[in-house]
Design a binder for these strands. Structure first.
Lengths: 214, 214
DNA sequence: GGCGGCAGCATTATCAACAATCCAGCCAAC
DNA sequence: GTTGGCTGGATTGTTGATAATGCTGCCGCC
C-alpha cells in the first residue's frame, strides 16, 4: 500500500474534501496532516494547494500556510453574477445544439425535481438542480464556459442549500427552469439566454435576502 | 544577491515571459532552466507551473514536463465568447458606477486611440484598446469578473494583433468603443452591456475571418 | 531500407534533511 | 493591568540526493 497519489489526484481529493465540507472554512491545511490523510507526497500536496489557491478555494499566505477560503456573501453574489453571464452563453449555445432527445432527458430531470419537491425533499431537489444546470452546459459543448462555471460553482457550495429554504423559492425555481427548457426546445437562443439569466438573477436575489447565515 | 523569488513572484515572472512571447507556444519549460532564468527555487518553479497549468497557459504532462500551451482558433473563439459575456456584465456594472470624471478619462483614452490610428500605429492602437477595456472593468468594481477576464485575455495574446490588421476593422472598433462609452455616460446598463457584447461579437467575427494565421 | 529492441541521456518526481519563519505563551518592566 | 520583548515549538520553504520515467539514437536483424 502507501501508494502515494500524484498531483492531479491529490488535487482532486483535497478539492473534494473541501467541497464536501469535511474541511471547514478557515480550517488550516497543515501539509504534514494532508500528507497522511491524502496519502500523497509532500510535493503533491503543495502542488494541490497551489492550484486550489489559484482557483480561489484556498488562501495561502507565505510562511503561514494555507486555509480553506471563506467566501463572503458579497463575493457569493459577485460569483453568481459572473455565473449568470456565463451560463447565459451556455444556454444560448445549448439551444443551438439541443436535439429532441436531449430535451427529453432534461425534462426527465425536471420531472424528478418536481416529485422530490412534492415529497419535501429539498436536499434532493437542490442536487437535481445542479444536475440540470450541468447537463445544459454539457449540451452547449463549450469547454471554456463549462470549466469556468464549474470553478465558480465550487466556490458557492456553502451557499447552495440556503436559497432553496426560502418559502416559495423552490416552486419559483421549478417554473424558471421550465421556462429555460421551453426556450431550449424552441431552439431560441435569445430566449434561452434570457431565461437562464433571469433564473440566476432570482437566485441572486434569494441569496441576498437569505443573508450570509452566520 | 540572487534573492530567490517566492512562488507568487515566480508565477508572475513566468507568466510575463509567456505573455510577452519570449517563450514561444509549444516551447518546453525545463525546470532547471527556469530555476536559473527566473532565479527561483525549484519548488517555486513547480508551483508556478502548476498554477499556469491550472490557468490554461501551460500544459503539464506527468513525467514529461510542461510546455507553453498553444490555443487553437476554435478555443480562441470560445474564450472570446466567454469574455464577451463577462465584460458585458462588467460594462453594465460600470454604467452604474461611472462618474463624469471617469467617463472623461475613458474618452481621453479613446481620443488617443483615434490619433494613433490616424498615424497608422496599429500596435499602439491595439494596446490602448486593451487599456480601455481594463479601465472599464476597473470602474465596474467587480473583482470576480475582472479576475476571470484577465485570465481569459491572457490566453489570447497570440491573437490580439491579428484582428486589427483586417482592413477597416480598426475604424469599426473605434466606433464600437464610442458606442460603449456613450452608453456608460448615459448610465444605461442595458445599453452598455449590449454595446460591449456587440463589440466583442464583432471581434469574434474578425478573428474567425482572420484565421489562425499559421 | 525498415523495424524492434536496447542502452544512455535528459528530465521530472519523490524523499529526507535542513534552514527560515511565524506564533503562543511567558516573564519582566512600567 | 498592560505592554514589550524573548524563547521554544510547530510549520513552511529550500536544497541536495536519489529513484522513476520518457525520449533519442544506435545497432543488429529481417
Amino acid at each position: 500500500m502507501a501508494v502515494t497519489s500524484s498531483t492531479p489526484e491529490t488535487y482532486e481529493r483535497l478539492r473534494a474534501a473541501i467541497l464536501s465540507g469535511s474541511l471547514e472554512p478557515n480550517e488550516r491545511l497543515v501539509e504534514a496532516d494532508l500528507v497522511r490523510s491524502l496519502e500523497a507526497s509532500r510535493g503533491a500536496v503543495r502542488g494541490a494547494i497551489a492550484r486550489l489557491d489559484h482557483e480561489g478555494l484556498v488562501v495561502h499566505e507565505r510562511n503561514r500556510g494555507a486555509k480553506v477560503r471563506r467566501v463572503s456573501l458579497e463575493e457569493a453574489v459577485e460569483i453568481l453574477e459572473a455565473r449568470a453571464a456565463l451560463e447565459g452563453i451556455g444556454a444560448r449555445e445549448a439551444a443551438r445544439r439541443a436535439d429532441p432527445d436531449a430535451i427529453a432527458r432534461l425534462r426527465a430531470v425536471l420531472a424528478r425535481m418536481r416529485t422530490r419537491l412534492a415529497d419535501g425533499d429539498l436536499l434532493a431537489t437542490s442536487e437535481l438542480n445542479g444536475e440540470l444546470h450541468a447537463r445544459i452546459l454539457r449540451i452547449a459543448h463549450h469547454a471554456t464556459v463549462e470549466r469556468l462555471v464549474e470553478s465558480l460553482s465550487s466556490q458557492l457550495v456553502r451557499y447552495q442549500y440556503r436559497t432553496i429554504l426560502i418559502p416559495g423559492r423552490a416552486g419559483a425555481s421549478l417554473a424558471e427552469h421550465a421556462a429555460i427548457l421551453d426556450a431550449l426546445e424552441m431552439r431560441d437562443g435569445d430566449a434561452a439566454e434570457a431565461a437562464m439569466r433571469a433564473h440566476l438573477d432570482r437566485v441572486t436575489d434569494a441569496l441576498r435576502t437569505a443573508g450570509d447565515g452566520r
